[in-house]
Nucleic acid binder design. Structure first.
Lengths: 341, 341
DNA sequence: TCAATTAGTACAAACGTTTGCATTTTCTTC
DNA sequence: GAAGAAAATGCAAACGTTTGTACTAATTGA
């Protein structure tokens, strides 16, 4: 059926091993043989069987990527597509393929990764975001399997990570609002088990403290990465007796939810409430008003993670195990409103 | 290093073949043996080597998915993430993994697919959208390799497809606008080599003709699936001496571009121009005004495609080779404005 | 001219499974 | 209790590569 290396060998009148060496560019095969074998491969339309190759060489030329767990939902956020795009692009550049793993529960996630790793299906793994107490990380570390985490995990300071300085980013955003005269600034956080949520919350608090502004616990609301949570946060915030005049929001899509709710209730942004968010997904400039957001270089995060992973997989030693991708705050209309005392 | 089937066999005092049969649930292995072997597998933390397994069984439990070519851009449209989500979810349900292939040129695309297919890396392939004269389709057909096309291709009426009735959908949208008194309806199309573009254009024309309305060629503008093209289309349309009062747009994101441009120029939607689009991506209800759109069941398309593919891969004969996913027009504010003569 | 190198190639084992067939063990039945 | 059938398991080949080692032929140096 399928043409194999021995078919080529027979046709060319050489041994299979010679053909194999031609393919892998072995130095001491005579130019004449190389030419002949290559011609025949071309002619017979030969393509190596990847499985057989991997079986003996222990290399798969594939990297695994663990999709966000509640795949049902987070996928709706452009954030992850953009990140995956970065990974795909870089991987393709080294002709690595990408294998997606997914699971709906933490258990299933570990199972999926286990299948990939123990089944020797991939050479390395990329984790798209960082939770505290992540069993996947523990597993990969235990197996000594190459992986890169996009994000950071305090329990494992030694692993390879690609991250932003989220504390600084949140600090910047908050200061931007304070600089316009806001003294009551609220914060819509992400799930508290995500490192990124904690970091940003910390940056926010730091900025408030530095400016000697009070941080009211009721101004801090927990959300996730979906629009609805923004809507909910909004209703809660706007019903507070002494409500904030500005809001820092963990993600654009959530800010969207806030914005939609406000518009629905007849509030004006930024006059009635200033809004600044993170991630700068393409939609943040499509709303009216456009939403101020921190560009964290999502694509870059994915791209760099893939690059770092491939380097370690290929045995190059990576000198710094924690790469930081720079962020940049992009002010837009949603946060441009000066408060006068 | 890695524990193999023979390690298990030794430990259990049986032959490797018995272990293999335990794994695959062979009927005539004694319950006692099954129990013992399973216990030892558990204890020794055994996971089968997927490569070795695939090499002999010729089955990979993996399906390939060809990402949209100008991956750089189309990925920015939530459309594809949503579709992939459908595919992933269904595939995971049958514990199939997903391998992503991509290429920046048509040539690279064919190469990528060839690698997957000839290298026996996947059991089947899903193509996310349909172009005319697609060499990938020709290749897969020639190889008699299982694949499912999301969309339709007139040159290959016999292949497995999952599609919408796009002619009907465009017909519905156009009629919706006409019903509100519009007589000058324009159309922002997609790339003309995509079947979906042609179908929708046809449906639009059909509706116009049925209502005895003129179809002015200058009211038909070509775009792609990105926001910018909407912006461009808008500038062109609004500068026409006799411009349309309503616009049917191939995709939400493009309609976004139109909307943004209009707002920028001080036009009001729907008063100055009515807008209706396709695909009903989550963002269509986030704009102001929200955009009327046809829900084509993107997730369903992906899910069903995966399901269909897995059926054929497993040898079940699929009785209908062309599955249609129902669509539903969702009117929103952007198209709700009645014209009085 | 002959030994010593070197260049080029072939042999065969290995990778970790699956599976058709042979073999052994256990169970029926008379 | 023996013969035959049925159930359970083992043997060995095969899948398509890679790679260490051995071999042959050509080249070199004295």
């Amino acid at each position: 059926m399928s043409v194999t290396i021995v078919d080529i060998a027979k046709q060319a009148g050489v041994s299979p091993s010679t053909v194999s060496r031609v393919i892998s560019g072995h130095p001491k095969i005579s130019p004449a043989t190389v030419r002949k074998v290559k011609a025949i491969m071309e002619e017979m339309n030969y393509h190596p069987n990847v499985m057989a190759k991997s079986l003996v060489s222990k290399v798969t030329n594939t990297i695994g990527i663990l999709l966000p767990r509640p795949a049902e939902e987070l996928f709706l956020n452009l954030f992850f597509s953009e990140m995956i795009r970065g990974v795909v692009t870089q991987a393709a550049r080294s002709s690595y393929d990408l294998l997606m793993a997914t699971g709906t529960t933490e258990r299933e996630e570990v199972d999926a990764i286990t299948r990939l790793v123990r089944g020797r299906r991939v050479d390395g793994v990329i984790l798209l975001y960082s939770r505290q107490a992540d069993p996947v990380i523990s597993f990969l570390k235990e197996e000594k399997f190459p992986f890169v985490l996009i994000g950071r995990n305090d329990e494992h300071p030694d692993i390879l990570t690609v991250d932003n300085n989220n504390v600084q980013a949140a600090f910047d955003v908050t200061r931007h609002l304070i600089a316009q005269g806001h003294t009551r600034v609220g914060f819509v956080s992400g799930p508290p088990n995500l490192t990124v949520s904690r970091d940003r919350l910390e940056g926010y608090k730091l900025a408030m403290q530095q400016e000697k502004l009070p941080v009211h616990p009721e101004w801090i609301v927990e959300g996730d990465f979906l629009q609805e949570s923004g809507y909910r946060a909004m209703s809660y915030i706007m019903n507070l007796p002494e409500r904030p005049t500005a809001l820092v929001v963990m993600d654009d899509l959530v800010a969207f939810g806030v914005l939609g709710g406000l518009t629905e209730l007849g509030y004006k942004v930024p006059q009635d409430l200033c809004l600044a968010a993170f991630n700068n997904t393409p939609m943040s400039e499509l709303t009216s008003p456009p939403i101020s957001s921190v560009d964290i270089g999502i694509y870059q995060l994915g791209y760099t993670a893939s690059q770092t992973l491939l380097r370690t997989v290929k045995g190059e030693t990576v000198h710094q195990n924690r790469v930081l991708i720079p962020h940049r705050f992009i002010p837009r209309e949603s946060s441009l409103h000066t408060i006068h005392k």
